[in-house]
């Protein structure tokens, strides 16, 4: 890395400030709205499924940057995790099942 200490701290501070502005943005602004418009409220209900699924899917489906289904260990383990999540809605059991399944699959392959 060919960057000065000052440059690194500048990047950290700039990202930190911008990220805080994102976090606080609507939490600050909604105070000045008398009532949240109904269409906005409906749209916000879909933020959680859309963004969380967008966070998860690439880590299960992409291997070295391209989509892989056959022989994809993380997809297989993810399906086990998804089944457990569906049945239990428990974070801890989903973690245990997913990580455990991945360990087993990796052992079987090698």
């Amino acid at each position: 890395m060919n960057v000065s200490d000052v440059a690194v701290w500048s990047v950290i501070l700039a990202v930190g400030a911008g990220t805080f502005a994102f976090r606080f943005s609507f939490v600050y602004l909604f105070e000045h709205v008398d009532e949240v418009p109904a269409p906005v409220e409906r749209a916000l209900r879909y933020v959680a499924p859309a963004v969380l699924a967008a966070l998860v899917a690439p880590s299960l489906l992409l291997v070295d940057g391209s989509i892989a289904v056959v022989g994809n260990e993380r997809l297989l383990a993810g399906l086990v995790g998804a089944a457990v999540a569906w049945r239990t809605e428990s974070i801890i059991w989903t973690m245990v099942a997913g990580v455990g399944a991945l360990m087993v699959v990796q052992q079987v392959v090698f």
Partner: peptide, 19 residues
């Protein structure tokens, strides 16, 4: 052999299911 980093997507998977 301990793929702990896989716990992160599993957390989000567990959280997306109820939604």
């Amino acid at each position: 052999w301990l793929p702990l980093e896989f716990a992160v997507p599993m957390v989000f998977l567990a959280l997306v299911v109820p939604t």
